[in-house]
Simulated assay, not measured.
Amino acid sequence: MIIVRPIKKSDLKALYRIAEDSGHGFTSLPVNEKLLQQRIKHAEESFAKDVKEAGNEGYLFVMEDTETGEVVGTSGIEAAVGLDDAFYHYHLGKVVHSSRELNIYNTVEILSLCNDYTGASEICTLFLSDSHRKNNNGRFLSRFRFLFIAEHKERFSDTIIAEMRGISDENGNSPFWQWLEEHFFSMDFPTADYLTGIGKKVFIAELMPKYPIYVSLLSKEAQAVIDKVHPQTVPALRLLEAEGFARRGYVDIFDGGPTVESHVNNIRTVNHSKRCQVIIDEVQSTDNYIICNSKVADFRALQTRLSLRETAKQVVISQAVADALMVSEGDWVRLVAN
């Protein structure tokens, strides 16, 4: 059985392997054992914390194959970004240069450095091993987070964002960053990406141009990748767009990839999810759902067949599923059609 649960200290080795496999551009998982230990510790503290409103909590989950005990993926939610460290974006806007006398009217795109998403919740750190990219596991690993958010809304902001990985090659070279590097940073993209991942972001404020950048002044290669996603990230973007996420003109300061956002109440999975009481019995239905318990530190989620008694707000699940979810008859669960 494939389940999702909160990360724990013993998952360090698996998380380190995932960090190595994830490659360049995956800022939230640096290949650094000490920092990954800190990330796990912070997650454990966040799950154990009694929360009334979104703060600096970071919830990191893992996907586990219970037959082998192997951790095959990870997925996370940051409750409120930018409260401890500045959270930077470029906003893609326009300025108009016009002259009535000369009958000239030009619209020019500009990139302005901003912290507009400070305090927003961020879904992040999504990675699934090649061996388990099947049976809708990727969709499950993304969508279960919205069930967790729906069940524990007090822990999150009304605005939910996701940063999409931008264009870079197999060596980690980003056309967008190469222009910034040449003119401002003298530091390659993997190094800048790594420093951000380990929390050393002060160099951004110190070296990043303070004034808006005219897009037309960037190299043609840099212009071409602004607001574009890495080919491997296209499925993740499409899934989020289907959930109701949209672009608002914000792009990553390193690779130019888009950030998408949605109000929590406009997210499809949040809206369509239902809370039901558990009945344990044989399941006759073939309908497939994502289902989770209502816990935090002992959170569990999985995909399964179940029978929904919508009018009575009841759901019939098997004993094996109940055991995996750590629920008993009469407990409340949250679910959504897969």
Rank of each mutant, 00 (worst) to 15 (best):
D85A: 05
S216R: 13
S131G: 14
V225Y: 05
P258W: 13
A162I: 07
I161H: 00
L335G: 00
G25H: 08
V72D: 05
W177G: 04
F140W: 11
V215T: 11
P175N: 10
E282R: 05
E241F: 09
S10N: 14
V4C: 15
Y16K: 09
L207W: 04
P212H: 11
H24V: 07
S294L: 01
S216D: 14
F148V: 07
A80I: 02
D158T: 13
S285D: 09
T304Y: 15
D116P: 00
Y289P: 02
M187Q: 04
N293L: 15
A43Q: 02
D21W: 04
H272G: 03
A14L: 03
E170H: 11
V321F: 06
A150K: 10
R165K: 15
R100M: 09
E122N: 01
I123M: 12
Y16M: 12
N338V: 09
E20G: 03
N271G: 11
R247L: 11
G172A: 08
G73I: 08
L335R: 00
R268L: 13
C114E: 11
L128T: 12
L111N: 03
P235H: 02
L147G: 13
L36M: 13
V95Q: 13
N266G: 14
I2W: 12
V229N: 03
D65A: 00
I226Q: 06
L15G: 07
V283E: 10
T74A: 07
V215I: 12
R139P: 00
S131P: 03
G25F: 08
F189Q: 06
Q178N: 14
D255R: 13
G249Q: 10
E241A: 04
N103I: 00
L207D: 02
R275V: 10
G55L: 10
A86H: 08
R39E: 08
I149V: 15
D50R: 03
D158K: 13
A242H: 11
P231Y: 07
E154K: 15
Q303C: 15
T68D: 00
N103S: 02
D331Y: 04
I149A: 06
A80R: 04
N115Y: 00
L240R: 02
F156D: 14
A14C: 04
K274D: 09
F47K: 07
E329F: 02
S75I: 08
D255E: 15
E67V: 00
D85S: 11
A236D: 07
V251G: 09
Y250Q: 12
G138H: 06
K228S: 06
G257L: 15
Y211I: 13
T66E: 06
Y289C: 02
A48H: 06
S129P: 05
E282C: 02
M187H: 04
S22W: 10
D21V: 01
V81E: 06
L36I: 15
F185Y: 13
F148R: 03
S294Y: 04
